[in-house]
């Protein structure tokens, strides 16, 4: 049975959460995908100020489709997380505590989740219309020129995810294929 909890509570509970736990998230997610990661990494390397505070944030790998007038957000499912792997240890070192996407990641991310006491969660890919109903508010917070790759702030209510990598090195994909 999925547990509903606020992002702040989730961050406090990271040490006790395990791969395979089903969660319903409430609070703020920041979207970022390929181009936004590249820019954030460059700003960090150049010691430039960032357009958002990364400490204790949850990053959602997503480039939403445009919203119809009156909708809180457009269709917004997860994209493949592995493409963000080269940037993830750096972002976790800057305080990001949760990443959300879809699919397996490299061994370096398992290690980084242990090192930085972070979680990687997966949402169901390809159900973007359904997930858009779990977002109550959205706005662009940075890199608007990147179009669909801009960074958005999403306020979510009971957004369904499963813990894929926990802070102890467990991996849901190994659990599910080693049955």
């Amino acid at each position: 049975m999925a547990r509903s909890l606020a992002i702040a509570e989730l961050i406090q509970q990271i040490p006790s959460l395990r791969a395979g736990d089903d969660l319903l998230l409430n609070g703020t997610l920041f979207t970022a995908r390929d181009a936004a990661h590249k820019r954030l990494a460059q700003l960090i390397a150049d010691k430039q100020p960032l357009p958002l505070q990364l400490a204790n944030t949850a990053i959602y790998y997503c480039g939403p489709a445009p919203a119809r007038p009156g909708d809180a957000v457009g269709p917004c499912g997860p994209t493949t997380s592995a493409r963000m792997d080269p940037y993830t240890p750096l972002l976790l070192s800057q305080g990001v505590r949760i990443t959300i996407g879809k699919g397996k990641r490299s061994a370096a991310i398992t290690d980084a989740c242990r090192t930085y006491q972070a979680l990687y969660c997966v949402a169901t890919g390809g159900v973007a219309a359904l997930l858009s109903r779990k977002v109550t508010r959205s706005e662009i917070v940075a890199f608007a020129d990147l179009g669909p790759e801009a960074i958005w702030r999403f306020e979510v209510a009971d957004f369904p995810v499963t813990v894929a990598l926990d802070s102890q090195g467990n991996n849901v994909f190994e659990l599910s294929t080693n049955r």
Binding site: C62, G63, P64, A65, R68, D71, G74, P75, C76, G77, T79, G125, G126, V127, A128, A129, L130, S132, R133
Partner: peptide, 17 residues
């Protein structure tokens, strides 16, 4: 369920169109 929401609201099934 996603297919139903997309059809009823005329919105994309997946954000990756």
């Amino acid at each position: 369920g996603n297919a139903n929401v997309a059809r009823e609201r005329s919105i994309a099934l997946c954000q990756d169109t």
